[in-house]
Design a protein around this nucleic acid. Structure first.
Length: 754
RNA sequence: GGCCGCUUAGCUCAGUUGGUUAGAGCAUUCGAUUUACAUUCGAAGGGUCGGGGGUUCGAAUCCCUCAGCGGCCACCA
């Protein structure tokens, strides 16, 4: 044995041995084996790994190796996610560098290009997981766009639809004009913003608003029925003068209007405000949008009027096509000019919704989209949690989950992107002449228009082949089907929210693999992931899992925290404090990386690590190596392993207690504690005391060897490489009694000490 | 505005049914060395466990309250 443990020499060959020996595959079930299953949270297929991935690998691999050694039929099923929006935008960035844009391709071609791009990068993530030491069953590796998975996902959609849990509705959705797609409520971040609150003269009233640009096509005014100031106006229809001429509106009375806010009377803009939209529904008001999907003013309704006053026309032309923020400035100036702005509260702060990924202000825009009715899916989850069919481990996040479930609103699953699973909805061309179509003609020119009009010039098959996107009116006739119902049909161009597929991951991966995997390994044992995706993923997996299988998808949820830097600060590229796990592996070894992340970590709480942590854990791996080396050199001398010494009895009692403690801690999912116990007991008891005692002949060499073998097993889940490397070094010694004590040729598949 | 969490040594953090002198890593100081390991060993200093109140024979741990920090949620125009 070398004097120091040189991780770089051992890690790759050891990993290859493990994998080629089939150690990562579950042993066959028998009467005495229990199943232990973890479905790996799938990293994005084309992304390189970051330190957070190392954290989940470390924690999950500890549990997997522990249970494998316990003799359970242990399956860790890995996979990757197509990560719809993230990937498509990364690809579009790449296109932009090549001076191209997605609008130059029909959707089929674009999808194919992204597919190839992901294929080219997809080995990176998986290779890196191997470097960290993930003992996952790669023979079962699954991708969210594998045909089998897609089939299952489409099937789920159709089942939800049949059971009346999916509906298509025209309503306000969270639309990001920059990303060009709608999002679910969860993807909208609310940030405090200071914005001027404008008090505008509005006929006999004054109203307060931060969004004067939406007022042109207001459909009503609303006041509280108890408000004496407006009592006499209730139900009256008035002509309100405005920047673009008078608007005729009725004053409605509604309890929800707060007399305390602003002036107590509000304008109702159903097309651009969620609250107003609901109010509009209640009072049957029309939805009259004035902002388009690019977040620009759309003044066509005014410009198309033949008798519009030239002053108003000039204004409408001025606003038309301007971004909302810019238009707002122009409008405020014009309000001042007309003497309609009575005052401005510059210190007003309110929460504004922004896109979680690009930070652009989210526009609530009316669009027909597919929604999942969540209530019927949520109730069984709440019940299961109450009955503790699933337990959530992680610093109060169980309460957060409950809060989410109780307040969840219907889930918009339509995304206006190409990279994803296309919604299996079909529109008959004959029945839907009003479909709005955008496609590329033979010259690759973008053509948009109503289907009926386009069909006068182009054939349906031409449109189908070169389709970019379509928008079906809410009244459109459609059929739900995994495959085309016939030549007359055009498929919806929206794709599913990526989470719609990843939410089905626990049962879908098992159903897509070996024929009896689902039956053997479902429900899975543990779902280990970061608390930051609790609502996006864990909550919805519970919902879909129970819906589809009637059982919870996992019994235990273990939530780890964020990895922070040495000072406890969040890692970010801009701060320059990002730790690349591969750099750490090269410098200190995978074992050091894993142990530094796990030791003394607590579920649900963030963990900070720095260079010194990796270094001291590397020192620990060297300590293991050298303790083994000391004993190795004794065994090499063909020592007698039958003699006993007076200190042996106490030694074995202590050793037994250490085994008991670590086993208990791992069984209780206290990996941070278990790692610390292993570290302290090995270094400060076994090395500092026991080995020294053995040097003084107080403890026998057999006891010491027994201790080493036991500790190699106990430490293996935490530091798999160095322990396996030592194990195999010992195996090479020609010593029968030692061979007998060790038993198995490979540590990874040896039996846990009990 | 609501909810969740955190506050323990200079720094980063452990400490699960309340029980002997409160722990680790790093940092600091002193010392050791023809040693399995200098990626080492021994020793030392350093904490009124955020403040206050309560329960208890006994509280870092349970309860109440206040404060600071962090996070999540929220359509009040």
């Amino acid at each position: 044995m070398e004097k120091n443990y040189l991780h770089a020499d051992h890690e790759t060959p050891i990993y290859q041995q493990w994998e080629s020996s089939g150690a990562f595959q579950p042993v066959a079930h028998s009467k005495n084996t229990k199943a232990f299953t973890i479905i790996m949270p799938p990293p994005n297929a084309n992304d390189p790994l970051h330190i957070g991935h190392a954290m989940f690998v470390a924690l999950e691999d500890i549990l997997i190796r522990f249970h494998r050694m316990l003799g359970d039929s242990t399956l860790w099923l890995p996979g990757t996610d197509h990560a719809g929006i993230e990937t498509q935008f990364l690809f579009e960035k790449k296109l932009k560098k090549e001076d191209k844009s997605r609008f130059q391709f029909d959707r089929e071609t674009l999808f194919q290009l992204i597919w190839e791009y992901v294929q080219a990068n997809s080995t990176t993530a998986v290779e890196q997981l191997r470097r960290i030491g993930a003992s996952a069953d790669w023979s079962r590796q699954t991708f969210t766009l594998d045909p089998k998975i897609v089939k299952i996902v489409l099937n789920t959609f159709s089942e939800l639809y049949t059971k009346n849990l999916i509906y298509r509705d025209y309503r306000l959705v969270n639309y990001c004009p920059k990303c060009g797609t709608a999002f679910s409520d969860l993807e909208v971040k609310h940030v405090e913003e200071k914005a001027p609150l404008y008090y505008m003269k509005y006929g006999p009233f004054t109203i307060a608003t931060v969004r004067p640009e939406t007022k042109f096509r207001d459909t009503a005014l609303a006041a509280n029925p108890k408000d004496p100031r407006y009592k006499d106006f209730i139900s009256k229809t008035l002509e309100i003068p405005g920047l673009l001429g008078p608007i005729t509106m009725t004053v409605i009375a509604d309890e929800e209007v707060d007399p305390e806010f602003g002036t107590g009377i509000m304008k109702v803009t159903p097309a651009h405000d969620p609250h107003d939209f609901e109010l509009g529904k209640k009072y049957n008001l029309p939805v009259t949008p004035i902002i388009d999907l690019q977040g620009r003013m759309d003044m066509r309704w005014f410009l198309e009027q033949d008798h519009l006053n030239p002053k108003y026309r000039a204004r409408a032309e001025k606003y038309h096509g301007k971004k909302v923020a810019q238009a707002r400035q122009l409008i405020v100036e014009d309000l001042k000019e007309d003497g309609l702005l009575s005052q401005t509260d510059e210190n007003y702060t309110h929460a504004v919704g922004v896109c979680y990924r690009c930070g652009t202000v989210i526009e609530p825009l009316p669009l027909p989209q597919f929604f999942i009715k969540v209530k019927p899916l949520v109730e069984p989850v709440l019940k299961a949690l109450k009955q503790k069919e699933t337990t959530v481990i992680g610093a109060g996040h169980d309460k957060v989950l409950k809060h989410w479930l109780e307040n969840l609103r219907d889930w918009n699953i339509s995304r206006q992107i190409v990279w994803g699973i296309r919604i299996p909805v079909w529109y008959s061309a004959a029945k839907n002449p009003d479909l709005e179509i955008t496609f590329l003609d033979t010259q690759k020119k973008r053509i948009s228009g109503k289907l009926a009009t386009l069909l006068k010039e182009y054939s349906l098959s031409e449109i189908q082949a070169q389709l970019q996107e379509l928008q079906a009116p809410i009244s459109a006739h459609f059929e739900v089907s995994a495959t085309s119902p016939g030549p007359d049909y055009i498929q919806e161009t929206d794709t599913f929210d990526t989470w719609f597929s990843s939410t089905q991951w626990p049962f879908a991966t098992l159903q897509a693999n070996q024929p009896d995997d689902f039956q053997k390994f479902y429900p899975t044992s543990v779902m280990e992931t970061g608390y930051d995706i609790l609502p996006f993923w864990v909550m919805r997996m519970l919902m879909m899992g129970i819906f589809k299988t009637g059982k919870v998808p996992f019994y235990t949820v273990y939530l780890h925290g964020l990895v922070r830097d040495q000072k406890g600060q969040k890692m970010s590229k801009s701060k320059g404090n990002v730790i690349n796990p591969l750099v750490i592996i090269e410098k200190y070894g995978a074992d050091a990386l894993r142990l530094a992340l796990v030791i003394r970590s607590s579920p649900g709480l963030d963990k900070s690590v720095g260079e010194s942590d990796f270094k001291s854990m590397r020192n620990f791996t060297n300590k293991i190596w050298n303790a083994a080396r000391f004993i190795y050199m004794d065994v090499e001398k063909k020592i007698d392993l039958t003699a006993t010494k007076p200190g042996d009895k106490a030694f074995y009692v202590k050793l037994h207690n250490v085994v008991k403690d670590i086993t208990q801690q791992l069984s209780d999912f206290r990996m941070g504690m278990a790692a610390e116990t292993a570290y302290n007991e090995f270094w400060h008891w076994f090395c500092d005391q026991a080995i020294e005692d053995a040097k003084n002949a107080n403890i026998s060499q057999k006891a010491l060897l027994d201790g080493l073998i036991t500790f190699l097993k106990l430490l293996h889940p935490f530091t798999p490489f160095v322990t396996e490397a030592i194990w195999q070094q010992l195996q090479q010694l020609d010593h029968q009694e030692m061979q007998r004590l060790m038993g198995s040729k490979k540590l990874i598949t040896t039996q846990w000490p009990l």
